[in-house]
Design a protein around this nucleic acid. Structure first.
Lengths: 239, 239
DNA sequence: GATTGAAGACTAGTATGGAAGTTTTTCCTT
DNA sequence: AAGGAAAAACTTCCATACTAGTCTTCAATC
C-alpha cells in the first residue's frame, strides 16, 4: 500500500484537510470510490501519511454534502445512489436553472453572455477533438457562467451540490449519457433564446435540457443493484 | 462566566459536537450571536465545559452552511449579513418553492394536503393567542409539508438552508416583518390554489408570498451597517 | 446442534499538547 | 513623539492518546 499524494500543493498553505476533501469528493463523484464502500479514518490516514484528524474533518464536510454517511461508533461509508435523491436533485436543479435562464433572458447582459458563448465554442472544439473530460468541464462552466449572467452567481453553488448526486450515476456508464452533440444543440438553443431576450423560450429550452437526464436511471439501477439504495417502502409522514 | 448548557440531552447518545452545532446554529439564526462576532474555540470550549475538538468540528459544519467563516490561523467569525446573499437566497427559494407549489397542484395529494391545512389552522390559533414564536414555527412547517405534498420532501432541506440567511435579517426587527395576518392570507391563497389543482395560480400565489420579503432589507442595512457586509464593488468575472 | 456470552478487534468521539501562522503589544531606536 | 523590529499573545491546525460504543469471533454451555 503506497502513499497516495494529495492534489497539487500549488499553494502549500492550503490545509491538509481541505485538499483531502477535494481529493475524496472527486474520487466519489467520479465513482473511483464506489457507493456503499466503507471508508476508514485510520486507513486513509495511513495511505496519505497524515493523522486521523484531518481525514475525520474531511468526512464531516463530505457528510454535510450528503456524499458520505457517518454512523457514530460504527463507521463511515459512501452513500449509495438513491433514485429518489437523484430525482429530487434534478427537480431542484431544474427549478433553479429555469429561473436562472429566465432571469438571464430578462437582463441580456451582453458582456457576461459573451463568456457563456466562449464556453460553447470551446466545447465544440473539445467535442471535435473527442476530449470528453474537457467537454464535461466546459458543460459545467456553461451553466456556471449563465448563472453569472443572470446576476445570481451564487445560485450555481447550490446547483453544483445537487449535480454531484446526479453525476455519479452518469459516470456509471458514459455510453448511456446524452451524446455530446445533443448537449451542444441544447446549450445553443438555451443561449440563443437568452441572447434574444425571450424569457419563456429560454426557460423552456433549459427545461428540455434538464429533463432527459434521468431516462436511463432505472436501467442503471437494475444493472448495478448493489450501488443503489433500496427504495423506501414506507410512505413518509407520521401521525 | 458560568457554564452554558447544551440542548436537551434527550438522547444522551447524541455526540457533543452535534448538540453544539444545534445550539450555535440557533443562536446565530436568532441573532443572539451577532454577525461579525468573533468565535473562539477555546472560549466556547471553556463555557460549555468540553474540549476544543468538538467545538472545532461544530465550526466546520457551520462553515459548510455558510453561517460562519473560518480563516486559517486567524480566527472564526459569524459571517455578516450580505444583502446580495439574502437576495440570492430569496431567488433560490422562490425558484424551488414555486416549482413545489406547481407540482403539489399537479398531484393534489389529498392526504398530504390535509397535513398542510392542519398547520394553517394551528397557525390561526397561534396568531389569535399572539404566540409569534409558535406562529413562525408553523409557518416553516406549512412550507415543509407542502414540499412533502409535492412528493419532494427533500427539497425543503435546501430551502431551509437558504432560509437561514433570510431569517437573521428578520430577527433584526420583528416589527418590520410581514404581519401575521398577511402571511395567513397568503398561505391560504397558496393552499386553496393547490387544492383546486390550479398549477399557475398556485405558483403565482407562492411567488407573491415570497416576493415582499426583502422590501425592508435596505432600511435594515442602513440602520445596522456594522451587521451587514459591505457590498462588493468589483464585478465578478476574471479573464 | 443451537444458543449464549465473553474476549478481542474494530469503529468514531473526545481530550490534550504542541506546531505553524497571524495579530497585537511592547520596547528600543531614531 | 514617531517608526520599526522583536516578542508575546493570540488563532487555527495537526498529531497522539485515550474513551466509549459496536460488531465479530469463538468457545463454553444447554
Amino acid at each position: 500500500m503506497d502513499l497516495l499524494t494529495l492534489p497539487e500543493m500549488a499553494s502549500s498553505a492550503e490545509p491538509i484537510a481541505r485538499r483531502l476533501v477535494e481529493w475524496l469528493r472527486h474520487a466519489i463523484v467520479t465513482m473511483r470510490i464506489r457507493p456503499g464502500e466503507k471508508l476508514s479514518e485510520q486507513e486513509l490516514a495511513r495511505r496519505f501519511g497524515v493523522s486521523r484528524q484531518p481525514v475525520r474533518e474531511a468526512f464531516i464536510k463530505l457528510a454535510e454534502s450528503g456524499l458520505v454517511r457517518v454512523l457514530p461508533q460504527r463507521g463511515t461509508m459512501v452513500v449509495k445512489i438513491s433514485i429518489e435523491a437523484v430525482e429530487d436533485a434534478r427537480f431542484i436543479r431544474e427549478a433553479i436553472e429555469c429561473a436562472v435562464a429566465r432571469e438571464a433572458a430578462r437582463r441580456v447582459d451582453t458582456r457576461a453572455l459573451a463568456e457563456v458563448r466562449a464556453r460553447l465554442d470551446l466545447a465544440a472544439e473539445a467535442m471535435a477533438a473527442g476530449d470528453t473530460e474537457r467537454f464535461f468541464a466546459l458543460d459545467e462552466e456553461f451553466h456556471q457562467r449563465l448563472a453569472a449572467a443572470a446576476g445570481r452567481p451564487n445560485s450555481w453553488r447550490v446547483v453544483e451540490e445537487q449535480k454531484a448526486q446526479m453525476d455519479r450515476a452518469r459516470y456509471l456508464d458514459m455510453s448511456d449519457s446524452i451524446p455530446m452533440k445533443t448537449v451542444m444543440a441544447q446549450h445553443l438553443a438555451i443561449l440563443s433564446a437568452v441572447e434574444s431576450g425571450d424569457e419563456r423560450a429560454a426557460e423552456t429550452a433549459m427545461r428540455v435540457h434538464l429533463t432527459e437526464i434521468l431516462v436511463s436511471l432505472p436501467k442503471l439501477a437494475s444493472r448495478w443493484p448493489d450501488l443503489f439504495e433500496a427504495r423506501e417502502t414506507e410512505t413518509s409522514g407520521a401521525a
